[in-house]
Structure formats: structure tokens, C-alpha cells
Nucleic acid binder design. Sequence first.
DNA 1: TAGATTGTTAATCGATTAACAATC
DNA 2: TAGATTGTTAATCGATTAACAATC
Lengths: 216, 216
Amino acid sequence: MPNNNGNSKEPARISNAVIKRLPRYRRYLAELRKKGVEKVSSNELSRLMGYTASQIRQDLNNFGGFGQQGYGYNVNDLYGEISGILGLDRNYKMVIVGAGNLGQAIANYTYYYKTGFIVDAIFEVNPKMIGLRINDRNVLDYEDMVPYVEENKIDIGIICVPKENAQEVADKLCFAGVSGIWNFAPVDLEIPPHVSIENVHLSDSLHSLAYHMSKR
Amino acid sequence: MPNNNGNSKEPARISNAVIKRLPRYRRYLAELRKKGVEKVSSNELSRLMGYTASQIRQDLNNFGGFGQQGYGYNVNDLYGEISGILGLDRNYKMVIVGAGNLGQAIANYTYYYKTGFIVDAIFEVNPKMIGLRINDRNVLDYEDMVPYVEENKIDIGIICVPKENAQEVADKLCFAGVSGIWNFAPVDLEIPPHVSIENVHLSDSLHSLAYHMSKR
DNA sequence: TAGATTGTTAATCGATTAACAATC
DNA sequence: TAGATTGTTAATCGATTAACAATC
């Protein structure tokens, strides 16, 4: 039964540390599944992933008792449960804003599409690009973004514009009704509380790599 | 004076949580500097960044007493100190492995170049791409990667190949002597202890966005 | 049944926050 | 000097690990 703090209506608040580990669990379970492994114990997962067995059991028990004493966890079932917890049992409609290098790279990825994240269109201000097609999606005029997002019930806006314009784009996307923003601009954006945001700060990532490299 | 656990030779081990915040401090300080702001207190930074003033002072004091009682922190100086701590006071030579969408996108970024991260070459297995130029860099044969990395004293290898090939690429890069790996493949790589690794797991990022979106 | 392994409580560890003396 | 704000110690909070009874 899900741990819900003794209140049978409200689910317990899950810490961000746990949430960040879920996609990783899912990757390892996908791997095991592909290899035809049927069951896995917290101890085996521990050896594989480097978390303690205790942490693995704690993490999973935030969401329910998916295992069986004396047996372990069924790989397939657990994979399905985690996919469900992550919200991967539905599709997400996305738009990319900014058809520069990064926007194009993301548009050309087929991986997301395969897993239910569907890029619907790409918006751009540069008139030379408007009307082109990238990986079968239309490059549309940024001016038309708000009505498009409204009419097509877009779920996620992917921000691939220079940092100077990122906040304005975020404001428009939120106004138009997205419920998630995937931000690649190297700034922190202000977002209304009902919208989720996930940042991919590539420069921050590179800088922390530099830190670790220089401290040796 | 740097906090060094009472041992004057060994610097204190800095927690990863702190290190991950450093690039963000640096971004905000860069912003302030650009605006011509001369000094900033932990309280002002707190309001700006959303960390507690106490945490900011603790974080900075891991590395030294950069502030002045009754005054605060000099923006320029602190920016320089943090840049130095991150190891951004030198250049890094990099190679990209994999000239697909992501590899090309990274090659086309000029931002890294400006800040001392220099893409030297791009390696690819596809013979149709070898010999092309992307943003003024040569696309070279993957077969020639190891001697190239050795001869040119490459610091960082950027892995932009499919996940099936990522470990092999990492092994070769480490053998050839890189000291850092920036991994974009959605797998966890085994790396010798003297090499640093930073992962950009885009699918994990998207999946945690999906989690937050579905829990509302 | 006996052995294995979970679910869960308790103990530990580490990170964040609060408080305040030092000092510019 | 008085006021402001740091540097730093102590208190609190939360996350991880250990332990073990429950149970398949």
C-alpha cells in the first residue's frame, strides 16, 4: 500500500532525490528486461547500480510494495510500475521554440518520439527558416505560437532560444497553457506554480566537470 | 583561510551539493557584474537566487573568506574566485565523438569556445561524413581517434554516440589520456578513478519532468 | 518447512538553517 | 562610533543506512 503519512487521501510528498533516481532505475530494469531476466533482488540491483540495497527498498516503498518477500522484484512488473509513476503511460505533445543548433538536434531525435514525447512543431523568429521542414515537422512563425499551443493542446514547451529571450518565451508558453517546460537556456526562469520546469543547463554541467578535473 | 579540517595540507572534501551550486552562483554574479553592481550581500543574493543567506555564506566559506564584515562581497572579486575554483582560468581541449544531431549541435555552439572549452575535432565512423567540416572543425575517422587524442593532449572527450557504443568510446578516450568525459549517451559508464565524468542524461531529465507534470 | 528477501522502524550521517560573536 | 554583515559554531532537519521482524 502506498505510504501516505497516515492520511489515506494525500500521497506522501516524495523527495526530489528519490524522483531523480527513478529514471535510472527504469533504465536498468529495461536493460534487465531486454536480457530476459525475470526477477531481481534489491541486493542484485545494488551491485548493478551502486545504490545500497536498503536505499533501493526505501525508494520503491515510497510508491508501494512492489516486491515479494523471499523472491525479490519481478523485472517486468517493476518496470511497468516505475513507468507509470513517472507518467510515461501517456503521450506528451511538445513544441520546440528556437530552430538553432540545439532546437534542430532535439527535433531530429527519434528517441523521444518512440517513447511518447511527440514534437508537433518548431517555432522560430528568423524569417529565412520559417516554412522549412526539420525531420518532418514544420518550422512555424514564432508570432503564431500562442494560438497554436492553445488549439493543439500542447503539453510541453522546449526552450532553445538565447538566454535573453528565454523568459519571454516561457511567459508566452505558460499563458498558452503548457503544463511543462524543458529549458535549455542557461537562465533560471520564473514560472507559475501550476507549470513544471526542468532545466538542462549545459554550461553548468561542463563547469562542474571542469571543477572535478582541476581538483586532482 | 580555506577550511581544511584542521589539516593544513589537505583541503576539505567539498560536498557535491555545493559544487553543483557553484556554476549557478557564477551565473548570477556575471549578471550583476554586467549590470555594474559592485557589491552584494548574502541577503541580497538570497533574495535573487532563492538559497538562504546562511547557505550562501556556508557555501562560499568552504573555499575561503571572500567577504568583508559590514560590507558584503565584491561582485567582481567573487566572480573571479568562483571561476578559479571551478577551474575556468585555463583552456580545455575537447573532441566530440559522434557527428550525429547532438554532436553537430555541440560543435556548432560558440558559447563553449568563448569560455575556454575548445572543440578540436569531431570523430565519426560513418565514411560519408569523414572529411566534412562542421563549424570549421574537421570530421575525422574514428579509427584515428586514439593517436589524435594522445598527440594533441586532449583534455575532454564528449560522447555523442548511441548507448550501445558509449562504453567502448569511453574506454578508448581514457586509454588515450583524457582527464574528463562529458557523456550524452543514456547509460552509466565505467571510468578509471583518475578520469572525471559528467553525464547529461536528457531522457532522465524529460522523465522527471513527466513525473512532476503528472503529479498535479 | 527452511531460506531468502522484502517492508519498515530505528540509528546514523550529512546537509541546511539559525544564531551570534567577530569585525569591517 | 554605530550599523551592517560576515565567518563560524550549534541546532535542526532530512536523507541514507542498518537492522530485523514479517512473510513469501
